[in-house]
Design a protein around this nucleic acid. Structure first.
Lengths: 212, 212
DNA sequence: TAGATTGTTAATCGATTAACAATC
DNA sequence: TAGATTGTTAATCGATTAACAATC
């Protein structure tokens, strides 16, 4: 579908949310829905929903609405859920462990194939059915498995050097929990930053404002 | 400063990022900076930085720039870093543990004062120097400590009932890791959602697009 | 056919960028 | 004073909303 390029980021970032709501509707046995009803459930305008969906094609039927299951599948396809990408995770500390245990990579378009940590004491331990490997094995592992995405749960200080190595290993995208600014040094890779601290501080701001 | 109301969300969400960059500059011994230089480091326009900062007041000096430390402190004050809010966390599973261990609440405007879990087997265990309490103690604890914010690391199914109780206990804001849509049922509370899964799916989309 | 709801164009709104006067 | 850079207004750009013709 040629329409799919040049979609704006606000639209893209709404897609996973549509996907979640459609999944819930599906689970609740709803088979079709109008943009108007979906808009009420999601707190958006019906206009925006139709505008968003039409970036990718006409998934609805005039006078009738959208088939929930079909729309769910279409958005899943658009998001790349059906062609999983191999991913590795670096830094098996508190955060890394939680990401491995808590995040269902398989249902979000990725296949987690390797765990790495700089601490050799962890080597040989397993986490979520995967062995924890030493960073020394990185190059060899990537040559064999060809992962394309790396999850960074490492300290900021360790990041620049590791990112350099990972890019050399063929990693094309990063899910970055570290505070190192990858994009600045590597404009060619895709980076999705997760700054949980920023989110917490935003909440602090909003509470402070309301207190006035 | 009366200017501080009606600031748009895009501006607010950039504040923590300014705060981080200013901290780094400070650490590196930089004492003053122009909007132009900061814009280059952050990948923004100088215009936007000046526009953003002027929502809150004139922190710079014409012909000279901004004092790094002063600006850092001002943004910290705006974000409410200096008046910590008491917070509790519910759900001490993988994710809850990681949040407790990994997130420095104290440096982001909050004081974590209590941990709660529905699993009584965890009761009495400690995590990050705090005892894990049963959800049964919630009401009594809140009466004594008056926390204003709750971190939700609980399953979606458990959320509606617990949120009800927490709002009755005087909780005014939620840092929500669950997929339950709090705002829909409680428009009066402040909610900051953290949807890590959405972030991962966005990355999947971006990779899928580039592959075309 | 009549009613409903989409797909799509046009209008509005808001956010970003550019420009420049103020001033250090 | 001259140079630099802010604070602020104006212009542009993009995203959202409204409107409505197309059509199921």
């Amino acid at each position: 579908m040629a329409k799919e390029s040049n979609i704006s980021m606000p639209v893209i970032r709404r897609l996973p949310r549509y996907y979640r709501f459609l999944y819930d509707l599906k689970e609740n046995g709803v088979t079709r829905i109008s943009s108007r009803e979906l808009s009420q459930r999601m707190g958006l305008t019906a206009s925006q929903i139709r505008q968003d969906l039409n970036c990718f094609g006409g998934f609805g039927q005039q006078g009738y609405g959208y088939m929930v299951n079909q729309l769910y599948e279409e958005i899943g396809r658009i998001l790349g859920m059906h062609c999983p990408t191999k991913a590795i995770l670096l830094g098996v500390g508190n955060l890394g462990k939680a990401v491995v245990n808590h995040m269902n990579f398989a249902s979000r378009g990725f296949q987690l194939v390797g765990l790495f940590d700089g601490n050799v004491a962890l080597e040989g331990q397993t986490l979520g059915e995967l062995p924890i490997r030493s960073n020394n094995e990185l190059e060899q592992f990537c040559q064999q498995e060809h992962p394309e995405m790396a999850v960074l749960c490492i300290p900021k200080e360790a990041a620049p050097h590791l990112v350099e190595r990972l890019v050399a290993c063929g990693i094309k995208a990063f899910w970055n929990f570290s505070h190192y600014d990858i994009a600045y040094d590597h404009p060619e890779v895709i980076v999705e930053n997760v700054h949980m601290g920023d989110s917490l501080m935003t909440l602090s701001y909003l509470m402070t404002q309301k207190d006035l």
